[in-house]
Amino acid sequence: MSQEESRGLQAKEKAEVTGPTEQTRAGLVFTPEVDIFETEKDITLLADMPGVKADQLTIDLRDNILTLDGEVKSPEADNEVDIFREYRTGKYYRQFNLSELIDQSKIDAELKDGVLRLTLPKAEETKPRKIEVKAS
C-alpha cells in the first residue's frame, strides 16, 4: 500500500467558482476537483461531481476550451427540515484550456458514481515524435 492510500481524508468545503464567468442564474456554483494526466496517445480528465446525473452534464470543447457544466438538483425532499448542514449543493462549472489538438470524433466520456472520466485522444499530428539527434 502506498503512502497516498493509507493517509486519512481531510474534510474540506467545496470551492465556489470565482472565475471571470458571470452566472445568470441563481444558485451556488462549485469548482469540481480534477485529475488531469496525459499519455502519448491521450489526455484523461477525472472530475468529482457528486450528485450529477449523466443527462445533466454538458461537456463542450471548442477553440481549445473545454467546459464542464453539471447541474445538480437539490436532493432533499420538500418534507425534510434541516438539522445541520456541513456541505452545500449547487452546480459544477469549470473550464480548461487545452494546449493539444484533440481528435474530436474520438472523445469518450463516462460518468459513474459521481466521477466523470473524460478521454481526449490527441490528434495524429500532435503526438510526440522522437527526434533523433545526429552526432556530426
Partner: peptide, 9 residues
C-alpha cells in the same frame, strides 16, 4: 470527513 447534511423527515 465526510461532511454531512442531516435533515428531519
Amino acid at each position: 470527513f465526510p461532511l454531512m447534511n442531516i435533515t428531519d423527515r
